[in-house]
Design a protein around this nucleic acid. Structure first.
Lengths: 206, 206
DNA sequence: GAATTATACGGAACATTGTTCCGTTTTGTC
DNA sequence: GACAAAACGGAACAATGTTCCGTATAATTC
């Protein structure tokens, strides 16, 4: 069962099925594409033209389609990697801060992520196969993450008990989504409000 | 000061902003366009190509753009006329049925209308100027309509008091919107549920 | 390390669709 | 009936998703 030896130098069992290892140049290009897509989507929404992403990544559009057969696959990939980044950020934040601060900062971080998703909400409901399971991935990865943050803050007595992570996750997304257009400060105020809401009734009042 | 004489035969001092009467052929084409658009939107969603609507209406695409400078103007026009039709339907239903039946049937009618709007929710949030005020129109016309139906049913004791028409309107739309893809029966069950909800606590239990 | 093969690349080419343009047709006026 | 204004149809243009293919790069073989 020595999978690691068979797989090569690094253990990344995540996508194994039919994932012949990419040539190094292909890996580089792929990274550049994801990076460029991230920036372009954040600036222009997920409806931005593929050519723009290609130019920004310094590749031809054919190369993008080699890695992401459909435009929606690229969107989904960026979305997934940002979800993962959010999970990672939670771990870091909770190591370096007290539970309430970690929770607060993570919600800010999370809301910034949501704010870069102009147009995705629409896309999600479009029935495109590439989006199948994206919402599930979103919940499956982020709910436990937020749950852990909440439980830590709860255990330290900084917030009250019984806050539902699912609700808070969606509520935050909705609050930030409606305010995306005009006021960037709005999200922050909304989050502050939510935080205050869950602090109400905490054991420690500090 | 004999302006009329100078202007010619008719007294239309200033073009009353784009409301010059249309030539009869233009009126016919316009009607055909709206009719075709209604059908196409219902079948293929509001993202259906303009050419398809043009073909179905038996006109050139140029003719569509003559009447609706932007694709979104056509969508908005169809939406508006369907809202109006919903209002009209409410009047008819309440004349021919007891209040609760009228209310139930109207909600069914309304949900069918909503179901034909695949993709519109997305469009509404796109910031296109043609959609400015559409949502307002939606609420301004339908809220009083539903309010009247509710009040009649309330007065007859068939539903409980204090049901908020705004909430019911939006709730119905949301319920039907999420279920649009798969199960057409789902909307009906949801509406039945809502109706039961507002009957709970009614004076008359019939 | 040169030759050969498999991978990957870039960008031109194609298809679809929103929108504009213009020569032609229809309607209204005298 | 002649002329002008309004309206039409569809070709042409532009933007964009997607495919294709000749070329370049990396892996493999000898």
């Amino acid at each position: 069962m020595s999978q690691d030896a068979r797989e090569g130098h690094s253990a990344q069992p995540v996508e194994s099925i039919s994932e012949r290892r990419l040539r190094p140049d292909a890996q580089r290009k792929m990274g550049a594409i994801l990076e460029a897509a991230f920036v372009v989507f954040a600036n222009s929404g997920v409806d931005a033209p593929v050519r723009l992403i290609a130019k920004m990544a310094g590749v031809g559009s054919g190369t993008i389609y080699r890695h992401f057969p459909q435009r929606s696959d690229l969107i989904a990939a960026v979305f997934r990697s940002q979800i993962d980044a959010c999970v990672t950020a939670a771990l870091e934040l909770s190591q370096k801060n007290d539970p309430l601060t970690a929770l607060t900062r993570w919600l800010k971080r999370y809301s910034e992520f949501i704010a870069t998703k102009r147009g995705l909400g629409n896309a999600l409901h479009s029935g495109e196969p590439a989006y199948e399971g994206l919402m599930d991935y979103f919940k499956i990865r982020l709910c436990p993450t937020l749950k852990a943050l909440l439980e830590a803050a709860e255990a330290s007595g900084q917030i009250r008990e019984g806050v539902n992570p699912d609700d808070l996750l969606i509520a935050t997304a909705n609050l930030c989504h409606t305010s995306q257009v005009n006021d960037p400060e709005h999200s922050q105020r909304m989050i502050a409000l939510l935080i205050d809401g869950i602090r109400f009734g905490a054991k420690r009042s500090s």
